[in-house]
């Protein structure tokens, strides 16, 4: 079952092309990561899928409907995690979550959601008194209170400390385990790598690679580097067949010191994909 299907999506702002022909397929139950540098077109793409922004051309189907024309009831099935609740500083956590629950036709139980995002102790606190991590979890609570089939998370852990990020990741995994389809965007490689089952890398408005964190950009089959220290210093060979190279090396020289076999890290692959090394 497909949750999101996009074909030939285009969007420009004046002379600036933000999205330049994107195709996407996201299956039900999948955690899909859209990875790319700032300004690559991630947020524009996601906002079009959410129905918040219009598009210039292309086919978009989200949960069986065109977000640009979907009726109000379609919004019962999507959840959007927006950044910050700065607009309601004087409401308490319980008030704002309880209130949002009433906008949906089949919401989750507010008390359970508060528990799930670990804000039980802060339920009576006003929003302005929350820490950054707590606010972010409140944002998630408001995104999932309607019990969505599809959840959008745009740059979810920006500004969180490592401990808060870890707890946030656990929360997202919990939602995924319940069957919620999740589309997350980020420019943090490790965040997407830990959370997403599949990744698309977006740069200059185009998808430049797609795959699992392990296979992205031909990472699984990319050239490996075999290095060792011989009597005359450091040796480096690049090879498609690292196992054979090591076997040959052993047959010739026996045990060598300082032997390593390395593959490009996801970061290497990513930087190459987004063209960071040409700039």
């Amino acid at each position: 079952m497909t949750a999101v299907r996009v074909r030939g999506l285009h969007k420009r702002y004046g002379d600036v092309v933000a999205v330049d022909g994107i195709d996407l397929d996201i299956q039900r139950g999948e955690v899909f990561g859209l990875l790319g540098p700032n300004g690559a077109g991630k947020t524009t793409t996601v906002e079009i899928l959410e129905g918040y922004r219009g598009r210039d051309s292309g086919e978009v189907d989200v949960l069986g409907m065109d977000p640009g024309k979907a009726p109000n009831s379609w919004r019962d099935r999507i959840g959007v995690v927006w950044q910050s609740t700065a607009d309601t500083p004087e409401l308490t956590v319980a008030e704002i979550i309880g209130n949002f629950a009433r906008y949906y036709r089949r919401p989750r139980d507010p008390g359970q959601v508060i528990e799930q995002v670990e804000l039980t102790e802060q339920a009576g606190k006003r929003v302005h008194a929350l820490s950054g991590g707590q606010r972010r979890r409140l944002d998630v609570a408001l995104g999932i209170i309607g019990d969505p089939d599809l959840l959008f998370l745009d740059e979810p852990t920006t500004g969180l400390d490592p401990e808060a990020r870890r707890r946030f990741a656990d929360l997202i995994r919990g939602l995924a385990a319940e069957g919620t389809t999740i589309l997350l965007t980020s420019h943090y490689l490790d965040e997407v790598e830990t959370l997403a089952g599949r990744i698309a890398v977006i740069a200059r408005g185009k998808i430049v690679a797609e795959g699992s964190p392990k296979t992205l950009g031909g990472r699984a089959t990319a050239v490996s580097t075999v290095q060792w220290v011989g009597e005359d210093g450091l040796h480096t060979i690049e090879t498609d067949t690292p196992a054979k190279a090591v076997a040959d090396l052993y047959a010739k020289s026996g045990e060598v010191s300082g032997l390593t076999v390395t593959r490009p890290t996801l970061e290497d692959v990513y930087l190459k994909l987004i063209g960071a090394d040409d700039e």
Partner: peptide, 14 residues
């Protein structure tokens, strides 16, 4: 400006 309206418009609230 602070994002309150866009948050509301993404819910099924009429």
């Amino acid at each position: 400006d602070l994002g309150g309206l866009r948050r509301l418009v993404s819910t099924p609230m009429p």
